[in-house]
Amino acid sequence: MKPFQEADYIKKADTIPLTICVPVYNGEKYLRECLDSLATQSFNNFLVLTIDNASTDDTQKICQEYEDPRFFYTRNPENIGSGPNHNRGLDLAKTEFVKLFSADDILFSDTLELQVKALRNHPEAALATSDCIVTGPQLEPLHEARYLQGSLTGDQAIQACVNLIDNKIGGPSNTLLRRSCVGSLRFDTSYKWLADLEFHCRVLRQGGYINIGKPGFYYRRHSATDSEIGCPPEVRERDERAFIRAYARSPLPRLRFELRRLKRRLG
């Protein structure tokens, strides 16, 4: 990969519509599979920016193996945390569309093509999402995760999530964002469990929602993910309470939250 030079990137971004940002920390185990899936997309007019959060493994070495001129690499001098590293990608992206993609996931070959088409066909939409196939560490399929279907207003999507107290939009790997709707919005690092949902809800205040209607990637679950490491039950409850407080319009989500909390306490 080329070392990231902002002037060089901005020059390319003038003629290229999409940047895929890949925040990574110690990703040597799965990173190569992830990057290979990006390199083989049917829609190929994009840039990849890998943002290494001061990894101590062979992440940098793996990135240097890629000679694709669309791929760029930058490294933080110190680990700034997962949320701020995602935000750094949003700071650096200058193209019409931006996708944050997890370094342990695998993008299906037609996903970018379908998501770009969806946003171009629906100029009112702030983001295009997809369903996904949830897998184990070795990509063994576990189940298909489905999110809100079809085309909705941003408010409809937000209220569906808050009423269910559930992320029915998807994580960063699910979505393609219209950068004009993202603007200066960034992940709120006070959230851990629901950081991606809360960020997407603020983006959806700027425009509509659309789902391409099929799985777009393999979502790999393993013991080293941010949600497994940093989101014990008390953190999840704290985030859910904050999300309800910020977005609920009726008592229903609060009642549902208390009932769930009681069931967890009772076993």
Rank of each mutant, 00 (worst) to 15 (best):
T175L: 13
Y9E: 08
F43G: 04
R146Y: 03
I16P: 07
P77A: 03
M1L: 07
I62P: 05
R75A: 10
K99V: 00
Y191K: 12
V48E: 05
G170L: 08
S250R: 11
R236C: 12
P77K: 13
R146S: 03
K214E: 01
L112K: 06
E6A: 04
A248Q: 14
I210V: 12
A7K: 13
C201N: 06
L38V: 09
D166E: 15
S37M: 06
S227N: 06
K94H: 15
K99W: 01
F108A: 02
S227R: 09
T225L: 11
Y247I: 04
R205S: 06
F101K: 11
R264Q: 15
D36V: 03
M1N: 12
R70K: 15
G171L: 09
Y25G: 11
I165W: 07
T15R: 13
S184C: 00
I51G: 08
P253R: 08
L152A: 00
R202Y: 03
I244G: 04
E28T: 08
D196F: 02
P3W: 04
C161N: 11
A39T: 10
W193R: 08
S173M: 02
L204D: 12
E234K: 15
A103Q: 07
T135A: 00
N121H: 07
Q156C: 02
N79D: 14
D131P: 01
D239W: 09
P17E: 04
P232M: 03
T129C: 05
A13R: 11
R202V: 02
V24I: 07
E28R: 14
R238N: 13
N45S: 08
S151I: 04
E144F: 00
R205E: 14
S151Q: 05
D131H: 12
L90D: 07
N211Q: 13
Q156H: 03
Y30H: 15
G89N: 04
G136Q: 10
P251Q: 08
E234L: 06
Q159A: 01
D14C: 00
Q138E: 14
K12T: 01
S42W: 05
R256I: 03
E140K: 07
S190G: 05
A160W: 02
L148T: 03
V203Q: 04
Q64V: 06
N76E: 12
T111I: 00
Y219E: 01
